[in-house]
């Protein structure tokens, strides 16, 4: 009995400063609630988050847009001259958008073309491979945790490390050629062949990120009620039909997340490819983010305005793609409810 009393006293003692603080805060908050109502309080509590979001996301976005309307090579806005939409006009000055060489900024359109094909192929393959991997990892495998860790491990690596590992494997005197040579196959210059290098960038990004998407899908698979599968089994439904009629529809919300994330990540591809190929051979793996980086930071006489314009366009494309996918997702949900 006395132990309970002591504990209760200790609790009260420890909580005293908290109670005091709550009373102090309570006074202004009550007045604020009276003045603004319940909805005003929601805005009040959201304000710190919105402030951080505004400073670190919205403000840079606005500054980036302002930069895109300026010209010159200086970095400080005060030293840059206003040129209106000239940077955008320069990016869009083209004989034919399908022929980058007919464009004033041929490097930009080359990067757009490369990024387009990269996104189409990489995202499609990523979803397929991640889905298959998740389905396999969801089964009762021996050492299932080990296999899950194996597939997730590359996600933990820095993109620079990923690029270097694969460079050591694929370069002329690399591990792959060494292995092939042991079997009497002539070494091949994988990283100077345009087609192979493009394939390599897709393969490497699949290897590096697939585990993350597989994990999201695996979580979705595990959330599907088991009794649905048991009912299907009792009805004698074929496995393919189970997949198409139960697994895939119920996995759709997770798949949508994966598609959106994979798409955004693919459009922004840069670091591991930059280390692996530097954008070469020629410009065959020169993607949009590298164009922005080189134009704004790495070229002789940098052009931050042009880089900012290109990044605004890239951002717009990402917003449109995300909205389309969210629209499709919402339509799917409505259909499901009906």
């Amino acid at each position: 009995m006395s132990t309970t009393t002591n504990t209760s006293r200790l609790g009260s003692l420890l909580m005293a400063p908290v109670h005091l603080l709550m009373r102090i805060i309570d006074v202004p908050l009550r007045s604020l609630q009276k003045a603004t109502g319940i909805s005003g309080m929601a805005a009040f509590f959201l304000a710190p988050n919105m402030l951080i979001f505004g400073i670190f996301v919205l403000l840079p976005l606005v500054i980036n847009f302002v930069y895109s309307m300026t010209g010159g090579t200086a970095f400080f806005l005060a030293e840059r001259n206003f040129v209106g939409a000239e940077q955008y006009s320069r990016l869009f000055t083209c004989g034919s958008y399908l022929d980058p060489m007919s464009c004033q900024e041929d490097a930009f359109w080359t990067a757009v073309g490369n990024t387009f094909w990269f996104v189409i192929l990489q995202v499609t393959l990523m979803i397929l491979v991640a889905l298959v991997t998740a389905l396999i990892l969801n089964r009762d495998l021996a050492a299932r945790s080990f296999w899950r860790a194996v597939f997730f491990f590359p996600v933990l690596l820095s993109p620079v490390v990923v690029g270097l590992i694969w460079k050591w494997i694929l370069q002329r005197q690399g591990l792959l050629n060494f292995g092939l040579y042991q079997f009497g196959v002539e070494p091949y210059t994988w990283l100077t062949d345009r087609n192979w290098t493009f394939v390599a960038t897709i393969g490497v990004s699949l290897w590096a990120h697939m585990g993350f998407y597989a994990l999201i899908l695996l979580a979705g698979l595990q959330a599907i009620p088991k009794d649905l599968y048991e009912a299907a089994e009792m009805d004698g439904t074929k496995p393919a039909r189970v997949f198409w009629r139960i697994t895939l529809p119920l996995l759709m919300p997770n798949l949508l997340v994966v598609v959106v994330l994979a798409l955004i990540r693919a459009v922004q591809i840069f670091d591991e490819v930059y280390v692996l190929t530097g954008g070469g051979p020629g410009t065959s793996t020169f993607y949009l983010t590298q164009y922005i980086y080189e134009t704004g930071f790495a070229s002789a006489l940098r052009n931050p305005g042009l880089a900012a314009a290109a990044s605004i366009l890239m951002g717009l494309v990402l917003v449109v793609l995300t909205l389309i996918q969210l629209g499709i997702g919402q339509r799917g949900e409505k259909k499901g409810k009906r």
């Binding site: 002329r172 100077t192 190929t277 530097g278 954008g279 070469g280 051979p281 020629g282 020169f286 590298q290």
Partner: peptide
């Protein structure tokens, strides 16, 4: 050696 000059895009040093 083609490896050197085609191994990057832009004016990257190799």
């Amino acid at each position: 050696s083609k490896d050197v000059w085609v191994s990057a895009a832009g004016n990257t040093y190799r």
